[in-house]
């Protein structure tokens, strides 16, 4: 006999990922490892910013870099060359990292041996926003040549992040980029977010980024001690 029945569920589709992200967050907290997830479009300058950050921080900090890429190991190689312990995740075609991939990568090492974890997400301005990883802070790298309308076109991506780095400001004289229109788009969904304009080419503004990192690491240390 076939009995028909409707079952009401009302369950968030991302529950499974969110649960794993929470586990990652707890693991990182108990290892007292400060962590950031860097998201951006392809070519915005994630790896270059990570290299600059490593040059500034590896003399005094033990840094772990987890690099998400669809197929290659170039970015992990660049991080290793710049002085970090680097773990590559090949997503095998996936356009984003998820909490499970990060969890597997982190289990390959001893978290308490590091002071800073940098996760480089796959270059993509849509998908990573839906997949929390469990990092303490989320960073978005925008870049001048992408255009000032990106926060208006990809609001989902800009809304959950803690800080926005605007990279490649050395190109401002050559591109039509209305900084005010860009900031306004950000403010709509993320009213208090900080914007750090910088150039990885000229190093202008990098000090401010290092300052942000140092400040957040201090807050994290206090919270976990």
């Amino acid at each position: 006999m076939n009995e028909q029945q409707k079952i009401t569920i009302v369950q968030n589709i991302m529950n499974a990922n969110d649960g794993l992200a929470e586990q990652n967050r707890q693991n990182l907290l108990s290892a007292r490892l400060f962590s950031i997830n860097i998201m951006a479009s392809p070519g915005a300058g994630k790896t270059t910013l990570i290299e600059k950050t490593l040059h500034a921080f590896t003399p005094s900090h033990r840094v772990l870099v987890v690099d998400g890429d669809i197929a290659t190991t170039y970015d992990a190689d660049r991080a290793a060359a710049a002085g970090a312990k680097a773990i590559q995740i090949n997503t095998g075609g996936d356009c984003h990292l998820d909490a499970m991939m990060v969890s597997r990568a982190l289990s390959q090492t001893t978290l308490s041996e590091y002071d800073l974890l940098i996760v480089e997400n796959v270059g993509n301005l849509v998908c990573p926003a839906n997949f929390e990883l469990g990092t303490y802070k989320n960073v978005l790298v925008a870049s001048v040549p992408e255009g000032d309308d990106k926060p208006h076109k990809y609001p989902g991506m800009y809304r959950g992040v803690d800080v926005v780095v605007l990279n490649k400001i050395d190109l401002l004289p050559y591109v039509d980029f209305d900084s005010e229109f860009f900031s306004k788009g950000l403010q709509v969904l993320n009213p208090n977010v900080e914007i750090i304009p910088l150039s990885c080419r000229t190093n202008e503004g990098l000090e401010k980024w290092f300052g942000w990192l140092n400040k957040e690491m201090d807050i994290f240390k206090k919270e976990t001690s």
Partner: peptide, 30 residues
């Protein structure tokens, strides 16, 4: 093209809808 208020240009907005992402129900046989 823009997410700013088209009427007054304000950036102070509230999201009324659009963030939903869930499974509501299923029909089954048994």
């Amino acid at each position: 093209d823009s997410i700013i208020c088209p009427h007054c240009g304000s950036t102070r907005i509230k999201v009324l809808s659009g963030e939903e992402f869930y499974l509501e129900a299923i029909d089954i046989e048994k």
